[in-house]
């Protein structure tokens, strides 16, 4: 079930890196150094996605995640 979307995304991913050859240098492209790297945006999207999930999960495991009734037990003071 899940293999198909992954294959599809990989195909488009590869295609978009290839397409960069045509896009680089076209009108309206920003002048920053990274926008001249081949396949920067798809890679940035992929790695950024992994980084976001990883950072959040580490922070969650270390100290942010609590059981659902964490606040309830202590707030009954009335």
């Amino acid at each position: 079930m899940r293999r198909l979307p992954v294959i599809l995304f990989c195909a488009v991913f590869a295609l978009s890196i290839w397409a960069d050859a045509r896009i680089l240098g076209s009108e309206g492209h920003a002048e920053d150094w990274w926008s001249r790297i081949y396949g920067f945006f798809p890679l940035y999207g992929f790695l950024g996605c992994l980084a976001t999930i990883w950072i959040a999960n580490v922070m969650g495991d270390l100290w942010l995640t609590r059981r659902e009734n964490y606040y309830d037990s202590k707030e009954r003071h009335e």
Binding site: V6, S16, A19, I23, H29, G39, G48, L50
Partner: peptide
């Protein structure tokens, strides 16, 4: 512009793969 549309789509495709 071609570049902006392409960049955006590439970014989204990369994210989709990660997901």
């Amino acid at each position: 512009t071609t570049a902006h549309v392409a960049e955006t789509l590439q970014l989204l495709v990369g994210t989709g793969l990660g997901f």
